[in-house]
Design a protein around this nucleic acid. Structure first.
Length: 282
DNA sequence: AGGCATGTTACAGG
DNA sequence: ACCTGTAACATGCC
């Protein structure tokens, strides 16, 4: 599920459940993720409270009171579930549910006083690492990231400076986490369609007005998606959690061959491949 | 059966 | 050093 809006939604929903809660125990059912979870590192956070949860790009950071942080990337299919100990089941977002059955790809269970946090990951591209909070930003995953698209740093000045003498095409630039962090294939497609700019455009040749349009639309789409609870594109039939619904707002992603959704436009959406990723436009 | 999938990373080659 | 395409990772869906 996870591009920036989805990760932000997960972050907000998990905050309600586990901030200020003490982690009592961790059970690893299956340690085969992108990286193996280091048990010796895990021990550093057991017995301590989660002080806050933050997000950087598509990464989740669980900051513990003793200055250790659990860094999580959801990969393609990582999800969190909350299992309540009592019978009060709260409906929340689709990224976790209160369904209590242990499922096939439940890799890790974090036990808190009243609830369990379960990490489930079908394709195992996600990972969990424990790090010193102070050294966090220096590590390889985070130190290469470009600015947050919703921050003021991502502005016309930054964009213009970066594309000087740059021979790349627009879609690849926006997909590059070093340039701007948190966008993925779905949102880049949507942003460019809304902006009416061809993904194959050479970035060097973008006009100032077009750059402004891209930046504005990036912020608009990400904010709107967060408001809608993110996008859930493979139906996630997990009964009691509600789904994100931004996928109903997709204007171009996965619509190849279908009618353009702009009013008075009768063209058909085309699909091409750019750097191994499906790209939709017309 | 084969193609495709929201992500990241390593590698080879230009 | 930078960039690109390709493949790899693992599983499930159509």
């Amino acid at each position: 599920m996870p591009e920036l809006p989805e990760v932000e939604v997960v972050k907000r929903s998990l905050e309600n459940h586990i901030v200020n809660q003490k982690l009592k125990k961790v059970k690893i059912n299956n340690n085969k993720l992108r990286y193996k979870i280091r048990i010796d590192h895990l021990k550093k956070i057991i017995g301590y409270r989660v002080e806050s949860i933050s997000r950087r790009s598509k990464y989740l950071l669980f900051n513990f009171e003793n200055n250790f942080t659990m860094l999580v990337h959801l990969g393609m299919t990582g999800k969190f579930f909350i299992k309540e100990n009592n019978s009060l089941l709260k409906k929340t977002s689709f990224y976790y549910s209160t369904n209590s059955k242990i499922k096939k790809h439940d890799h890790v269970e974090f036990e808190f006083k009243r609830k369990k946090l379960i990490y489930n990951d079908v394709r195992r591209f996600g990972f969990i690492k424990i790090l010193c909070t102070k050294k966090l930003l220096e590590i390889n995953h985070l130190n290469i990231l470009g600015p947050e698209p919703l921050s003021d740093t991502f502005d016309n000045k930054y964009f213009s400076k970066k594309i000087k003498n740059n021979k790349r095409i627009l879609k690849n630039l926006l997909m590059d986490q070093k340039f701007i962090s948190g966008l993925g294939n779905i949102y880049v497609n949507e942003i460019l369609f809304l902006s009416r700019i061809n993904p194959n455009r050479q970035v060097m040749q973008l006009k100032t007005k077009e750059i402004k349009t891209i930046i504005n639309n990036t912020k608009i789409i990400l904010k709107k998606s967060i408001k809608f609870g993110g996008s859930s594109i493979k139906n996630f039939n997990d009964s009691d959690g509600s789904n994100g619904s931004f996928q109903q707002n997709f204007k171009v992603y996965s619509r190849s061959g279908k009618r353009c959704m702009r009013s008075k436009c009768y063209g058909l959406v085309r699909k091409i491949v750019i750097s191994n990723r499906s790209t939709f436009f017309l």
